[in-house]
Every structure is written in C-alpha cells, then in structure tokens.
Design a protein around this nucleic acid. Structure first.
Lengths: 137, 137
DNA sequence: GCCGATACTTGAACCATTCCAGAAAACATG
DNA sequence: CATGTTTTCTGGAATGGTTCAAGTATCGGC
C-alpha cells in the first residue's frame, strides 16, 4: 500500500514531511531522529528538527513506526511493526539489527512472579558486538 | 560480607559516599540517581550530585551494582547482581520490580539469527501496570 | 475556493547526565 | 604517625536528545 493511503487509513493528514520520514525509513530501518532528519532534508531542506520529532511521534502513535530505545543510545525508529520481533544492539557503536525469533527457554518470556503487576508485553534485547566493532577490537 | 570489604575486594577505595550509596540501595532496590542522592544526603548532607554519579559508575563498573535503563525513564540501580534476573517496568510510573530468570545465567535466550553479531547477553523487560497505577486507572 | 483543524517553523526550555578544574580525602610507604 | 601520590569529591558549567510554546502555513471537508 502506498504511504499516502497508509497515512489516511490511520486518520493522519498526508504531508510532505510525513511521506519523507516514511521514505527515509523504508528499507533502511533503525535510524535515529538525527539520521531521519538528514535523509528528509535531502529532499525537503527546510524541514525543522521538531517537525521530525512530531512526525516520528505521530507515526509511532498510529502504529506505522516502532520506536526502539537501547539503553545509553538515542531512540531509533523502524517501519517493521506488528510482528513483535526483537533486536540485537551493538554495545560498541549502538547499531541495531532485527532478530526474528528467540530460541529456547520459553519460561523466560512468561514472568514467574509478577508482584501484582499487570504484564502486557515482553521486550527482548540482545547485546553484543557488531561485525565492524568486533574487528576493531 | 561488609560493604567495606566488598569495596576493597574490587580494588576500590573505601569512602563515606560509596558506603552511603551501597547502604541506600540495600533492600530498597531500583532507585534512580536522584533517589539515591536523597538517601545519601540523609546521613551525608554535603555529598554532591556528581559524587553520586561517580560512585554509581564506579560501583556498576566493579560489578557491585547493576544499572537498569527502562526506555523513557531515568536509569535505576540495584544491588542484586550476578544472577541475570529480569525486570517488570510500570508504564505508568516507571516503578521496577524483579522477575526471576528460570535459566539463571546469561544469555537465557538465544537469537535465531545473529546477523554476524557476537551476542553476549539477553535482556528481558516486561511492561505493564503496577498495582498502584492499575487502581488509579 | 473557504474555513476550521491540524501540522509546521522558530526559538527557548528541559532534564538526566557528563565534563572540568581545583580542593580534599584515602592509603602505601618511610 | 607524617608524607606523598593517587583517587575521589565539590562546585559550577556544559552537553545532547528531546520537548514545550506561540505563531504561521497547510490539509482537506464543505
């Protein structure tokens, strides 16, 4: 479905900055706000920092983007939504990649005792070193 | 083991602020830097904000504290280390509680495909509502 | 094409955290 | 216990990612 229709479907107005943000994240996944801004400005040089934050917020709220916040790194955004996949984060450079599914020990995904919390979701983040940082030592 | 010995064992100097931070986190778990500062100043009123951050860093680096960084909330610290347990975070107030890990050692989960990353640990965070926030609606 | 609601621009503020330089304290040594 | 070296603490300023506020431009139903 074209991005234009995706936006309308969620009751969001179609604007150039929104289309540009969606385009910036297409196929490139896991960009932070600053990187998104860079891509957007390649075609729309006058877009403001806040516009990008507003758009990222709106699209995330509408379920068109997913926000990832790895500890110690700025938030990143991706278009892959709705499938609850997981992520590997490089503890060197903060690079993020997708992990389709998790193997083994299901009990770890169902909390044993919830201390009265009403648990809604489980988030799994793997930490390690990306190929580049591994070589750099 | 007394905190004094714990510090020396890791080659860390024994100072009043460090003992106070360890004491503040004893049995109270999951405090953020500001809360730690509050407890520390109850006995050492002149301790600076930066001293608390320095101490939290030093103790975390030495493996005496574990740092938790729930997305969208300031970092929290706890004394329970070395057992790879997980956490439930309240998406209302940010309160954190422990969730025991069935496996016990890291990583308790393994990604299906690692995209060339050398994975070292898996972090599981459960999101939900704490009893208080649940009542508040 | 007009009008009201929504989105964008500019500019300033925010907060957790870090950086810096200098003063103070810890502890190995004599 | 006096000394010197090294680490840690104080105080103040700065940082960076993100958000708030007020006004202007744009979208899209009528």
């Amino acid at each position: 479905m074209p991005d234009t229709d995706l936006l309308r479907e969620r009751g969001l107005r179609v604007t150039a900055p929104r289309l540009a943000v969606l385009d910036a994240l297409s196929g490139r996944g896991h960009l932070d706000a600053d990187e998104v801004l860079g891509h957007v400005r390649a075609t729309l040089p006058s877009v403001s920092v806040q516009a990008v934050y507003d758009v990222l917020h709106a699209l995330t709220g509408a379920g068109l983007l997913r926000r990832i916040e790895p500890a110690g790194h700025p938030a990143r955004y991706e278009r892959r939504v709705g499938d609850n996949h997981h992520h590997v984060v490089c503890r060197g450079c903060g690079a993020v990649d997708d992990v389709d599914c998790v193997v083994g020990h299901a009990p770890c995904l169902v909390p044993s005792s919830t201390s009265g919390f009403a648990v809604e979701s489980a988030e799994v983040t793997f930490w390690g070193l990306c190929p580049t940082c591994r070589q750099a030592g």
